[in-house]
Design a protein around this nucleic acid. Sequence first.
DNA 1: TTTCAAACATGATATAAATCATGTTTTGGC
DNA 2: GCCAAAACATGATTTATATCATGTTTGAAA
Lengths: 240, 240
Amino acid sequence: MAKAPVKLNIGCALCEHLSDSLLNGLSKEELDAINVHKTCIKYKKGQNIFYEGTRPTGLYCMNGGKVKVYKNNVQGKEYIIYIAKPGDFLGYRSLLSEEQYAASATVLEDAKICFIPKDRFMEVLQKNPLFMKRVVKAVCHEMGIMEEKMAELAHKSVRERLAANLLMLKETYGMEGEESQLIDIALSREDLANIVGTATETVIRLLSEFKTDGLISFEGKRIRVLEPRKLARQADLITG
Amino acid sequence: MAKAPVKLNIGCALCEHLSDSLLNGLSKEELDAINVHKTCIKYKKGQNIFYEGTRPTGLYCMNGGKVKVYKNNVQGKEYIIYIAKPGDFLGYRSLLSEEQYAASATVLEDAKICFIPKDRFMEVLQKNPLFMKRVVKAVCHEMGIMEEKMAELAHKSVRERLAANLLMLKETYGMEGEESQLIDIALSREDLANIVGTATETVIRLLSEFKTDGLISFEGKRIRVLEPRKLARQADLITG
DNA sequence: TTTCAAACATGATATAAATCATGTTTTGGC
DNA sequence: GCCAAAACATGATTTATATCATGTTTGAAA
């Protein structure tokens, strides 16, 4: 049986992730304008999307999989700024600030990502003040989250940060309904350490402690949050 | 001799800080629209501008002095996100994300700050796509800086961060020309510690080390950067 | 000018977390 | 199914930095 060619360019209007996306709310015509010029590509785990220091030529829109956005310091240590999931834009910050990428992006789980050329996107953006307003709102919301994370990094212990990040990952990447306590990303201990901002060994140790204390359990490469309230107490989010 | 009433509301068009401001580039009419509804107030050192958790009702625009924007964690520890100087907007992030303030703002050096009601500002913003674009660009640029700071907090030592922050302060708040090495803010050791994300005692100790090593000197409450290159080496920004 | 609080300073101590070392388990490629 | 490499795990050691304690200086207010 001959393989049918994989049709990647499904129209944005029909994209299952449209409702989670900033593109949601655009008119049929606007979506079409983007649609005609986009290119959708499948990426394998470990593949790079863009590197820090290069210039953005467009915008990436996640259609499937998971991508980590991270910075490397001089000593090669990595800090993961965020993990993009379907519906998320990727690299739009640098595109809008008209600067080089301040971070790199690499695929964590096999992904399908659509690329929208800069000009096409900017055209739609500038012709639609409401769209622009939504983008601004999203960017400013992101900044609030980053402020929170900075204060956390500055004054919280690794244990607290790990607990807080596990809860955050559960909220953001937890599955639907029944299985909402299962963190649906196959993160290596090293990646988790680079999210928390600590050494891999430290994360391994703390995770086994949390497991011993019955706060979490491991399911294959995934982590299940058994006791969110106790974890929140570890994170020092609630007292008592 | 009777005191003449202090006229605070100088027109934005004549403001000496307009060229440093995001308002720069607006038309005479747009500036007037903002101008008519703005209120300029003098604040004393230590006075609070807004608190985390409250709702913004407008935008603050710095006309003089210095203001720290910071977050307090549960234990009361403070992290200073940035220090606003004349020409800077204050609180525009929360205004644009339509959320509560994610941080508090307190005067570090006697300040004059103009308040622009939300509606007036949004009106001008939404009617001028170019202005909107400049605001977006500025916000996205800020995000890049925050990403950098997060990576720094995650993986750099306190010594490195202090050195890096001294250099940053010199760049941003250094005086003009000859005296550009003098950091023109009267920062307490505690404030500096809350910028770096460490304990006050640690900052005091490291500062005296830097002083002993001839990298900096103290001039009253101010710090002079004597050896920026050596400091950059301490910050691990350059090697060798 | 005195006084009192805040800021600055320095030493001693405790400790969280990085680093180094080594061993085991899992995984993906052939 | 085998092998090498990566990921995971755990122990020992070091180190940076927070915390605690105490003393001194500075500065603002009375």
